[in-house]
Design a protein around this nucleic acid. Structure first.
Lengths: 204, 204, 204, 204
DNA sequence: TATGAATGAGTATTCATTCAT
DNA sequence: GATGAATGAATACTCATTCAT
């Protein structure tokens, strides 16, 4: 009896999470419009109405998902920074750590990475959500750039421009390593990708 | 009679072109899926069926449009290169010319530029078309990089990686100048955007 | 061949009319909300999309239908008035003719009469449409009342009030004869219903 | 503990009444089908499930509500009759008192009056309920008519027909005064509305 | 009694595409 | 080629109702 109850009882959040998981997989696989809400619910093992109990609309689900994945990424990166000791001593080394960690995350979360590539610039995600998510994620980079400029290590270009540039380079890199999976473990290619990034920003 | 026919008749290609023009505007404005073929036809001033005389499907229309715009861009850039004299003497100057010309094109064709941003990575455009278009456009860059590497001016990273990086930086730049139109004419910002691009590629 | 074409070809307006006919029958039978657009189309022998080709929405269809039926009624009544000779000589006789004709119409068009009863006061029909339709139909009555008041035959109450009263009495009468069909042909009952109507309006 | 329970606990009947009140307001405002049970519950400050503890279904709620409002009306009218002294002496004066009282009730209970107008003829209310309610309310009128006919004051038409006619005139009158609120206090208009009613029934 | 998360059948509406003219 | 009425499959979303707590 007890066990049955325990087994059947889904810990509240799980249905919502199951919907998010299913949506992520399907949106990446088929695209947003080609994915029906019914298919999301079915894959999540819930009724179609349940989706709309948790999310006001299909769009709201996408926005929620986008934010969630971005935050997960941000959190993972920020953990990586915190667990390093003596941060700040060598800025380039910090930057490289950040860069490689971000690439690693993408390679280890291929679906979420494809999700980034497909929806980071898509107009299907609400513009304000996109901006909000971007800021939360790129905050590390802002900190890094500012510190580097103070130390005279990073070039003194306008920060928003540098930020946009970083983002573009990151997306290009993960797309490259996704399209050519065999090079994701190639140290020299990984090193090269960081160099392209770093050189564009450091002082000459 | 004759004159009436002549007057009313739109020179063959014009209906097709009108459809492409309307589609471009609407796809950029509302997105691909939110744009109905009926609305495209209406804006173009033709009947709904006419669209399907010129294009096999809505998807085919998008692909055709994508290719056309990319080629237009490529042609414009290539014209810019050809009209310069003594190309090749100073590679950095060539690169800068190329870069600024590409940015200018985007700023002068805001709709087509938004079209690039929205559909360059979108899965709505056929993958093969996207690749084909990319190659045709980025060919100049390949030539540039190869020459630079031979001259020892450009770093010796794998070309596909550098290419991807260039593309990412270009998209980031035009998005930046689109989001902040007031800086598109600011020489120092334009210069900075080129520097970010150039530094990532040149030898240290 | 020719005949086949002729037979298959539905004279344009017929699909729209078929939809209106089906909708009338179903709305009366099942109510507006209980009637699906699919069932209307099916009964009309057209595709579901066709309904929305002719009417912007289910609501628009109802409004259109309401107006059409009201106008048909008005036209029938107005024909009845015109085909009588020497109208105006005896106002009471004119009024009785009008009244009995209106009742007859309802009894001979039972479905449309039920439609009136169900939708004349329903909030499902647009308020402006309802008012518009009412005015067009009750115009005869206004003319009658005004003439009667000038002749000193009809009491001098405010016209809008008398109009509302007439309408209420008419709806009550047709509901009565509908609920008790056997009395619709009973001359004395029909006479009584007119008397109730006429007495409320004539001068004492 | 105890006090908390007591304070939070709403006296049994109140939740049911709150549901009825909310339903009345919403049904009048938006119509029966446009009102969801969820919105009724929300407005009443109870959970969605609670509605179904008190009423078997949404339809049952409407029927219950209809009966309740009709009875409230009947009770109010019957109070009015009882509190008058020497009823019966002057039938016309009794009838006028009844009529004006009924109009007053409608004007003082605008929402319930609109409820009458919308649902008295609607097929959404169960036919038997409607008839039952009608009888309970119109009983006064039956009594009045019968007495009047015995006294030779009221015309000798079939009672069901006269009843239907009364009902129609009453609905017309309250709709008229609702649509033109400024005339509800105009004595001459109120007097006129009664005259229209009375003349249709009294002997010539 | 009360709750509110979950259900899933039901529905209006859209839209790419066709084809007779 | 050009037209636009017609098609009908597809889909987001609603909502009365249930039931485990």
């Amino acid at each position: 009896m007890i066990s049955k109850t325990v087994v059947n009882k889904v810990p509240k959040k799980d249905k919502k999470q199951a919907l998010l998981d299913s949506a992520l997989a399907l949106f990446v696989d088929q695209g947003f419009h080609a994915t029906s809400t019914a298919s999301i619910a079915k894959k999540a093992g819930v009724a179609t109405g349940t989706l709309f109990h948790h999310f006001a609309s299909k769009d709201a689900l996408l926005n929620h998902l986008f934010m969630a994945v971005k935050l997960e990424f941000a959190e993972d990166i920020s953990q990586g920074i915190l667990t390093r000791g003596q941060t700040g001593k060598d800025l380039k080394s910090d930057a490289e750590h950040l860069w490689q960690h971000a690439i690693d995350w993408a390679l280890q979360n291929p679906i979420k990475q494809r999700f980034f590539l497909q929806y980071s610039m898509s107009s299907e995600v609400d513009a304000t959500i996109r901006e909000q998510a971007m800021n939360s994620v790129l905050h590390f980079v802002v900190v890094l750039i500012e510190k580097g400029q103070q130390q005279g290590i990073i070039a003194d270009f306008p920060i928003p421009l540098m930020l946009a540039n970083c983002h573009g380079q990151y997306l290009a890199a993960i797309r490259y390593f996704t399209d050519h999976p065999q090079w994701g473990d190639d140290v020299s290619q990984r090193q090269a990708s960081f160099e392209l990034f770093w050189r564009s920003m450091k002082v000459d």
